[in-house]
Design a protein around this nucleic acid. Sequence first.
RNA 1: GCCCCCAUCGACUAGCGGUCUAGGUCACCACUCUUUCAAGGUGGUAGCGCCGGUUCGAGUCCGGCUGGGGGCACCA
Length: 476
Amino acid sequence: MVRVRFAPSPTGFLHIGNARTALFNYLFARKNQGKFILRIEDTDKERSKKEYEIAIMEDLKWLGIEWDEGPDIGGDYGPYRQSERLNIYKEYAEKLLKEGYVYKCYCTKEELEEMRKTAQEKGLPPGYSGKCRYLTREKISEYEREGREFVLRFRVPEEKIEINDLIRGKVIFEGEHLTDFVIMKSDGTPTFNFAVVIDDYLMKITHVIRGEDHLSNTPKHILIFKALGVDLPYFAHMSMTLGPDRTRLSKRHGATSVRAYREQGYLPEAFFNYIALLGWGTSESREIFTKEELINEFSIERCHKASAVFDPEKLLWMNSYYIKNSPIDRIYELSLPFLKSSGLINGIDENKKEYIKKAISLEQEKIKTLKDVPYLIEFFMKEPEYEKENFDKLINQETKGILKEIVEIFERMESFKREEIENIVREFCKEKNYKTSFVFHPLRFAVSGRTKGPDLFGMLELLGKAKVIERIKKLL
RNA sequence: GCCCCCAUCGACUAGCGGUCUAGGUCACCACUCUUUCAAGGUGGUAGCGCCGGUUCGAGUCCGGCUGGGGGCACCA
């Protein structure tokens, strides 16, 4: 049984790069009929916030990434919040201490700082020198008497460590480049490197799929797995998500949280689809996939080794593509929050529902994000404002005359259907020998206050005879 | 500084030794459709980082260089 996990730390909103990691794990789990587990890595007490934990879960759900085990729904291998597993880490740390895999280190911040400096000068990694590795009994009791705090460090052996990465193949690290690292902090909480291993082991994780930034940490994890005497999971280190300047995508690059895109009016399925294409692709370079298709097509072997630049432009295109191809009911529902916050509508007015839906559908092909909707249909809901520049360009004695005649024609019409309006207006142009555009443009402007907009006749029909006539007359 | 990973159009990618005069998508440009704006259609600009090898033959295999990224914390 495949078991994978996504383990975010709740120090901010769900980041695009993390969302992609979650997605790949999710796809892999579903593809293999396995379990997808959500674990919250909140051992950093300073930066972890409950509200971010909630936000991350909300955004995952919004994306359609649902988990089988997690802090909110539980599971057989809980708890799923690291802050609630502290005694577990302590237990295993003591076991490793007893067995000699780790030792107590009493070094102070200053001593460590000094060590880093000299190590750097010697061309060694800026890590730990092993000072406390073989302390004498006397020295230990002396430190204890002083009341010095200690951390637990892993005794790194000088041996080759080999990773068989599912994406990268064989990766070899020389043990000598690793220095003794901390597994338990002086406050009794585990470090990330220790907690992941304990959790992955106890939660029976079979495949560790995570970002490439963890590749260099993996030797440490392997060392701990070995010290524990347990089997290694499979490792798969996926490429990073970069900003346009090819550095790791971060706040500097603007909107990098899933939440921001959600609030900007992106559809979850568009975001889901786009992000799957970052560092992964099919042999046909297909672009559009449903969630089910993605689950079907996904394979870890097709994951790219090279990192991928996040391209908001392409996401925008994909979003508009999904909007164009979604049923109007869905677009309507998704647009409601945006219509409300723009003040265009208050509650859900059932009477207006069909009207709004039609308005949206007239503009559907033009919507790039849901946030565009209020502006695009605004003039269907309230009186237009006439911009002076266009007014001067389009409304003059001659066009006023034309509009007057049009009003008269409209007034004589019994019904006011798109086809009829178009026929009658075109006929009018022909009779009077006007170029159609010479009539259409002022007409559009008169009823909508805009020079751009949806299909003119569809717009007139939806607005309705009375409204159309009223608006034109008001202008004359 | 040391270690690790990576390298096809501006971006995402297809390509797993000959079928590549390197294909698709976004963006860009032109044309087209048209009542505006879009959308759509058609076409176009643009790429195998460099140097050596291996081979009858290299984008594809190997090595080096260069370039980019990541890691080396009592952050995760």
